[in-house]
Design a protein around this nucleic acid. Structure first.
Length: 497
RNA sequence: GGCCCCGUCGUCUAGUCGGUCUAGGACACAGGAUUUUCAUUCCUGCAACACGGGUUCAAAUCCCGUCGGGGUCACCA
């Protein structure tokens, strides 16, 4: 039988980095064994519904390049033989299963009002006792239960056998035992008939013939109830693998969207906006709890696809390592050709309103030139905005450091000499400019430091591509304009000496 | 609090079911060389088996306990 894995996000409106990692592992496992990866939307709880939430998640998958074999967008075309892939559209299946479970004595209606069970739960909590709840009617005859269910549509509980120990052979946790007496009868349908997660999830996994469930360890405690459900439904449970949750950097705490540590990005979309490459994200995610061997850090998708295995997934929490991810990003940026990089960077300049939308051919050539002049200084795609803005921004703006440099003693007069040198540079190329500026450096006694002044005056920044590249990039006319602007802006404050 | 899971350099981790592990790699960091900014590149260095008991000729690896961290205990997913 082929391997069938799934990822079942609830439509929250964004793809969490931890969710993406879980999805990726499922995807890798399926690809590794030429199986299928299924995407299913767990939207049984309308209260959580967010507008276009599914679209955002699908976009995340598309950007990462993780394709699915069955799932939402196929449903519309009738593709994916085991659909629909939205739980909200599978109600009749759940309904039938609930009736079936009651008929066979595996579940029973519980008319206890929610407020009452809630009270019992609170009391147990206050007494520091485990909350093990069993409905009063758990031993009702199936026929009567059915009548009660049909007439009142109360909540339904699964009748967990007492006094047993269930065993889970988890692919990464090993053997995990659980006493059924600690479980209680969990609810599978709320009042009115809507199925709850555990039921819907198990039913779908059966219906979609899922063979391997790879999910984060916070689901470990859901697994034993689900195991009973599989049994009650007469199905063979799939292989389970509970992978470690993704922890916030340098902590063992689960990384959450609610309160992420300062500077830590959680949604995949944020990484995209920051200018990360999918290859870097995927590589970093692949190393989150999984390793190829004792030394390989850089792994492209093909390599991971060919080697992924649950056996090498670790059991302890996997902490996100932003520094390492950044280092990987640097690596994948270098793997790209200039054309590829430029294609990817252009949208960032458009978004920053620095270049027009149908990108003019001229702008593209400048960006190519900037890319060439920057070399490996461009780490994130968005860096093009930082390093290239002086070429496109309508007015030159000096950042704090650059302004500081230009206010130094003697700089004002040096700027005039620099202007002269630039004005007379002919031809306007790297070599000519370099020797001309060097001459000014010697005359002013500033030596090599003159370059810092030129950069600050021309680009408004203290870091960036080579100085002479910057001049050539701008061309003589614009270079002079920038220098003039700098002279004007800083001559007042500068000492007159 | 109950139950469950986890515990190797600052960080991410390797550690094939006990034996060249005086614990390996990578990131980060520090120092040096190259670079007239920055970024690279190249050396060098720093640095860990949570603790305490066992078992064994031998333990990071097995067992027990302690401590620590985390997850989960819904008519949420």
């Amino acid at each position: 039988m082929s391997v069938r894995t799934r990822f079942a996000p609830s439509p929250t409106g964004y793809l969490h980095i931890g969710g993406a990692r879980t999805a990726f592992f499922n995807w890798l496992l399926a690809r590794r064994h030429q199986g299928e990866f299924i995407l299913r939307i767990d939207d049984t709880d309308e209260a959580r519904h967010v507008e276009d939430a599914v679209g955002k998640i699908l976009e995340g998958f598309a950007w990462l390049g993780l394709g699915w074999d069955e799932g939402p967008e196929f449903a519309e075309h009738g593709g994916g033989s085991r659909g629909p892939y939205y739980q909200s559209q599978r109600s009749s299946l759940y309904e039938a299963a609930i009736v079936d479970l009651i008929r066979r004595g595996h579940a029973y209606p519980d008319v206890t009002p929610p407020e009452e069970t809630e009270l019992a739960r609170k009391a147990a909590e206050a007494a520091k006792q485990p909350f093990v709840y069993r409905g009063k009617d758990r031993d009702i005859a199936p026929a009567d239960a059915l009548v009660l269910y049909e007439s009142q549509r109360p909540s339904v509980r699964f009748k967990v056998p007492t006094g047993q120990t269930t065993v889970l052979e988890d692919k990464v946790r090993g053997r995990v035992e659980w006493q059924t007496d600690l479980l209680g009868d969990f609810t599978i349908a709320r009042t009115g008939g809507k199925p709850l997660y555990n039921l819907a999830s198990v039913l779908d996994d059966i219906g979609m013939e899922i063979t391997h469930i790879v999910r984060a360890e916070e689901h470990l405690s859901n697994t034993h109830p689900q195991l009973h459900l599989f049994e009650g439904l007469g199905a063979k449970p799939p292989v389970f693998a509970h992978i470690p949750y993704v922890a916030a950097p340098a902590t063992k705490k689960k990384l959450s969207k609610r309160n992420p540590p300062p500077g830590v990005m959680v949604a995949i979309e944020e990484y995209q906006k920051a200018g990360y490459l999918p290859a870097a994200i995927l590589n970093a995610l692949g190393r989150l709890g999984w390793s190829l061997d004792d030394k390989t850090e850089l792994m492209d998708v093909e390599l991971m696809k060919a080697n992924f295995s649950l056996e090498r997934v670790i059991a302890s929490p996997a902490g996100l390592d932003p520094d390492k991810m950044f280092w990987m990003q640097d690596h994948y940026m270098r793997q790209l050709t200039r054309d590829q990089r430029v294609d990817l960077m252009l949208p960032f300049l458009v978004d920053a309103k620095l270049i027009a939308d149908p990108v003019p051919e001229e702008a593209r050539r400048i960006v190519e030139h900037i890319d060439q002049a920057c070399g490996d200084r461009l780490k994130l795609l968005a860096d093009i905005v930082r390093y290239g803005s002086f070429c496109f921004a309508p007015t030159l703006e000096h950042d704090k450091e650059a302004a500081k440099n230009l206010r130094k003693e003697g700089v004002a007069s040096a700027l005039v000499q620099i202007r002269n040198a630039v004005a007379h540079a002919e031809p306007f190329d790297l070599a000519t400019l370099e020797s001309a500026i060097q001459k000014v450096g010697a005359e002013t006694g500033m030596g090599g430091k003159i370059n810092n002044v030129v950069r600050a005056a021309v680009t408004g920044r203290t870091v960036g591509p080579g100085v002479f590249d910057c001049l050539v990039l701008l061309g003589k006319e614009k270079s002079l304009r920038h220098i003039d602007q700098s002279i004007q802006a800083f001559s007042v404050d500068a000492p007159t000496s």
